[in-house]
């Protein structure tokens, strides 16, 4: 039954494909960091010379922005008919 439902799905959204996409994604992430050995990234200010700077900085700031938006959302979010009432 479950397998049937899986087969009816578009191949791109089957559980198996999604698992493969995650594995491929992690491999790609590792590759971009390892590529730094081949093409050293030249920093301008010191901190951006640290290893994998763009990787950890990009990830860290994005998580911070997601959490920041979530927290602001508690104050700012209203039902979408708020102004029509």
């Amino acid at each position: 039954m479950n397998d049937d439902a899986e087969r009816r799905k578009h191949w791109l959204v089957r559980r198996d494909t999604i698992r493969k996409i995650w594995i491929g994604g992690y491999a790609l992430l590792a590759l971009t960091v390892l590529a730094q050995f081949l093409f050293p990234v030249h920093g301008h200010f010191g901190i951006d010379d640290s290893f994998g700077f763009a990787a950890w900085y990009g990830f860290g700031t994005c998580v911070a922005m997601i959490i920041g938006a979530k927290l602001l959302g508690f104050i700012l979010k209203r039902p979408d008919d708020y102004y029509d009432r």
Binding site: G25, L28, L29, T32, V33, A35, Q36, F39, V41, G52, F53, A54, A55, W56, Y57, G58, F59, T61, C62
Partner: peptide, 12 residues
Amino acid sequence: VFQFQLLLFSGL
């Protein structure tokens, strides 16, 4: 390399 790291990790 910088740009791929920045974007792909923000994707993560």
